[in-house]
Nucleic acid binder design. Sequence first.
DNA 1: CTGAAAGCGCTTACAG
DNA 2: CTGAAAGCGCTTACAG
Lengths: 341, 341
Amino acid sequence: MNTPASRPRPSTIHDVAREAGVSRGTVSRVLNGGHYVSPTAKAAVDRAIRKTGYVVNRHARSLITGKSDSVAFLLTEPQERFFEDPNFNVLLRACTQALAAQDIPLLLMIAGTEDERRRNLRFIEAGHVDGVLLVSSHSGEPVVARLHEAGVPVVACGKPLGQTTKVGYVAADDRDGARDMVRHLYMSGRRRIATVTGPLDTPGGVERLAGYREMLAECGLHADEALIATGDYSRVGGESAVAQLLERAPDIDAVFVASDLMALGALDALHQAGRHAPDDVAVGGFDDSPAALAARPPLTTIRQPWDRISGEMVRMLLARIAGEKPSTVILPTELVVRESA
Amino acid sequence: MNTPASRPRPSTIHDVAREAGVSRGTVSRVLNGGHYVSPTAKAAVDRAIRKTGYVVNRHARSLITGKSDSVAFLLTEPQERFFEDPNFNVLLRACTQALAAQDIPLLLMIAGTEDERRRNLRFIEAGHVDGVLLVSSHSGEPVVARLHEAGVPVVACGKPLGQTTKVGYVAADDRDGARDMVRHLYMSGRRRIATVTGPLDTPGGVERLAGYREMLAECGLHADEALIATGDYSRVGGESAVAQLLERAPDIDAVFVASDLMALGALDALHQAGRHAPDDVAVGGFDDSPAALAARPPLTTIRQPWDRISGEMVRMLLARIAGEKPSTVILPTELVVRESA
DNA sequence: CTGAAAGCGCTTACAG
DNA sequence: CTGAAAGCGCTTACAG
């Protein structure tokens, strides 16, 4: 009546069977697709379910089927990144919703440290989830191998680098996005286009740099290594990278920064150097995360289609759980022109 | 060997019992605290567990105990807000970690629409989680009542307004934080101090305004209703609120904005009006979210102790699950002085 | 302290 | 199409 513990005993399949005047087996059959059940029986059961407010006990079901009907969202990133980078936020939310549409709960696991990784792996390997959505940008991730060994279906966000085992993944077309941005910079008259890359052990780091190089060549621009600086996807990383760039090549008139967050840092560095975006130096970002709008001036950037990415991740994971082989999905990006370039 | 389905059969309590040369009951006893077990038997079981790599099957356990050993993080906010407001990010992460330390998985539930709310409630009421961490700032939340009726332990983040049922909650000291900020503004010489409040059906909206009024009075400043504008916790909301303020009272020299995100909008409005922070108008925020650092100039703000808030929420929820009555925890905030004020 | 036994709520061959 | 029965892996009184 007052505090907890007063939770009413939920009705069971037994109650439903009694109410409907059929056996428990029949109730179970309608619950599981309604095959081999007469229309009359089905109708009676449906009515009884409604009347009793019956909801299946997932534990009992899972005990038999060996499936948990839940999925893990495993984030193997240092906490700071999760804090700082709005992309995770967006991806997590979208995956949760895509799963919810199928009535599948998402278990959030944050494994930034070795210790947490061990605990979470133990949990997963014990069969407590049917599959995992893996978010981890850095290569050489031992988690992928472990999961594969345990036979747990996995779908990664972004191409897992340095993996011998093949794992399904979905990614945005990083290279093409980078090409679009550099082309945009070129078309708007820029000729000394620098870049701040992501870490070169991440797919975004490698691919966006490749796109930058390709488009530079196609535009007939000289590939000057002094125009390339490496960042770490953090704001301060972007700041110091651009500071370096400014020192090495004071004549740059544009910089393609491989993430919005780093682009924020780029703006900081420019500001400190007394340079203005976009007038003195155009700044192009990547992600179209909330950070792009928060920037002053708002960032011209490359949109990653997070909704589609997460939708595909979920679809693929469910397919893998159902026994399908791993596959790869590459989604197109889109140039979003705002004020910074 | 290759794809899924090859998941090895995990060892059961039976395997452990055989290995240890004891009954399954004994194994279960050491698993559940080790009471009524001889040291010899315990040692043998521990060894057997290590040898077999046994991990308890939670479904089987839950089927008996009626507990799920998992907790829901229920967010009843429109999606946009979750997207935009970094606070959720921080809180979610901190709760996940606090729970993980106890080996309790967190189920993330985002229920922005009526439909999602229904689905999630159904899931929760079916007993699939032992308790819920509720994040929902607006009052008149029917979810609280439903959960209470179903006898599900709940701990809210922030005081649930307009509730007849008493639910445990933990909150930052909003009023005191507001007082600190207004005092800071006053001490630095400001005399026409305006405020942008949160929605007045949220605890942060009401309490921070109350703190503002109190401190104004204590400083002997005239309470001018023209200096009060209401925002909606969004960036654009903050922007238009300050635009209004500037129109109504062009002579303001400071504004206390009830959230960092709105403060970002305040900065936008100031910029558009050709006013500068902090020189022309000092801007004080609230939250110390990542947005505070992203702001130009970086925001002077009131830090909400998210780590402690989430830690207390988890502690309290676990206590409630164990049968304790609901309680209230108010945590102190802290003034963080940066450049905007 | 310990084993044998019942039972949690479900699904799934197996007969009909 | 449908019921009776076995069994999923565990916990928990109940005897000893």
